[in-house]
């Protein structure tokens, strides 16, 4: 079926889209099967994500989950952000059509990769 109003709202007015100068961590996920791609940038202070930006090449759900994932991630501790799952993102968007669940997976994966990148820079 169609997208929820929340999804459309985030698609219409996506938050935190674009590049970031001097990020503390960057995560890129791409899907070799269908070609979607996301690149997320995070800024971390005192173990907390204080800013996030994301670039997305993908469908409406991918753009909306990008927007929602970054919104949710900002303000979270690194540990909390590691736990952020696609279900939570999808729920926050009042659900996604079943065939679009994988898009929210991409955004969460990208975030987790950015955290990995951040952590690897700390040592």
């Amino acid at each position: 079926m169609g997208y929820s109003d929340k999804v459309i709202e985030h698609f219409r007015n996506p938050k935190n889209m674009g590049k970031m100068e001097n990020p503390d961590g960057v995560g890129t996920v791409g899907n070799p099967v269908c070609g979607d791609m996301m690149k997320i940038y995070i800024k971390v202070e005192d173990g907390k994500i204080v800013d996030a930006k994301i670039e997305t090449f993908g469908c409406v759900a991918a753009i909306a989950t990008s927007s929602m994932t970054t919104e949710m991630a900002i303000g979270m501790t690194i540990e909390e952000a590691k736990e952020l799952s696609r279900q939570e993102v999808a729920e926050a968007l009042d659900g996604l059509p079943p065939q679009k669940m994988h898009c929210s997976n991409l955004a969460a994966d990208a975030l987790h990769k950015a955290i990995e990148d951040y952590e690897s820079r700390q040592t």
């Binding site: 890129t28 996920v29 791409g30 070799p32 994301i54 670039e55 997305t56 090449f57």
Partner: peptide, 14 residues
């Protein structure tokens, strides 16, 4: 504006 492909890199997971 927010497409990662605009900068020219295309990335697909290995």
């Amino acid at each position: 504006e927010f497409s990662p492909l605009t900068s020219g890199v295309y990335f697909a997971n290995e």
